[in-house]
Computed example of a mutant assay.
Amino acid sequence: MLFFLDSAKLDEIEYAIKRWKIDGVTTNPRHLANAKMKVEQFIEKIKPLVENTNISVSIEVNPHLNDAESMIEEAQRIASMCENFVIKIPATEAGFEALSVLSKKGVKVNVTLVFNVVQALQAARLGAYYISPFVGWKEERGDYDVDFISNVVRAVKNYGFKSKILIAAVRSARHFTEAALAGADIITASFEVYKRSFENPYSSLGLDIFKDSWDQIQK
Rank of each mutant, 00 (worst) to 15 (best):
Glu178Val: 13
Phe191Tyr: 14
Ile187Tyr: 01
Ile186Trp: 00
Ala184Met: 05
Asn200Gln: 07
Thr188Ile: 08
Ser197Asp: 04
Phe198Lys: 07
Gly183Pro: 13
Ala182Phe: 06
Ser172His: 08
Lys195Cys: 10
Ser190Leu: 06
Ile186Met: 05
Ala189Gly: 03
Ile187Pro: 03
Val193Ala: 02
Ala168Arg: 05
His175Glu: 06
Arg174Gln: 14
Ile167Ser: 01
Arg196Trp: 06
Arg174Ala: 13
Phe191Thr: 02
Phe176His: 08
Gly183Ile: 04
Phe176Arg: 09
Phe198Thr: 08
Val193Trp: 04
Ala168Cys: 09
Asp185Trp: 05
Tyr194Asn: 07
Pro201Asn: 07
Asp185Arg: 11
Val193Pro: 00
Ser197Asn: 08
Ala189Pro: 09
Ile187Glu: 01
Leu166Ala: 07
Val170Ser: 04
Gly183Phe: 12
Ala180Thr: 14
Thr177Met: 13
Glu178Ser: 13
Arg196Asp: 05
Leu166Asp: 01
Gly183Cys: 08
Ala184Cys: 07
Ala168Asp: 02
Phe176Gln: 02
Asp185Asn: 15
Ile167Lys: 01
Glu192Tyr: 09
Gly183Glu: 01
Ile187Thr: 06
Ala182Cys: 05
Ala180Arg: 12
Ser197Leu: 04
Gly183Tyr: 07
Phe191Lys: 12
Val193His: 00
Arg196Gly: 01
Phe191Met: 07
Tyr194Ser: 06
Phe198Leu: 15
Ile187Arg: 04
Asp185Thr: 13
Ala173Gln: 10
Ala184Val: 06
Ile187Lys: 00
Arg196Thr: 14
Lys195Thr: 09
Ser190Phe: 03
Ala179Phe: 05
Ala169Asn: 15
Ala180Trp: 12
Ala184Glu: 06
Leu166Tyr: 01
Ile187Cys: 06
Asn200Phe: 12
Ala189Cys: 08
Thr177Lys: 15
Leu181Val: 15
Val170Ile: 14
Arg174Asn: 14
Ala168His: 06
Ile186Asp: 02
Arg174Cys: 11
His175Pro: 14
Ile186Pro: 03
Ala169Cys: 14
Ile167Val: 15
Ile167Met: 07
Thr188Tyr: 00
Val193Gln: 03
Tyr194Ala: 04
Leu166Gly: 00
Ala173Arg: 14
Ile186Gly: 01
Glu199Val: 14
Glu178Leu: 15
Tyr194Cys: 03
Arg196Ala: 10
Glu192Thr: 11
Phe198Val: 11
Gly183Ala: 01
Pro201Gly: 04
Ala180Tyr: 13
Asp185Gln: 10
Glu199Asp: 12
Glu192Phe: 09
Ala184Trp: 02
His175Tyr: 05
Asn200Glu: 08
Ala169Leu: 03
Lys195Pro: 09
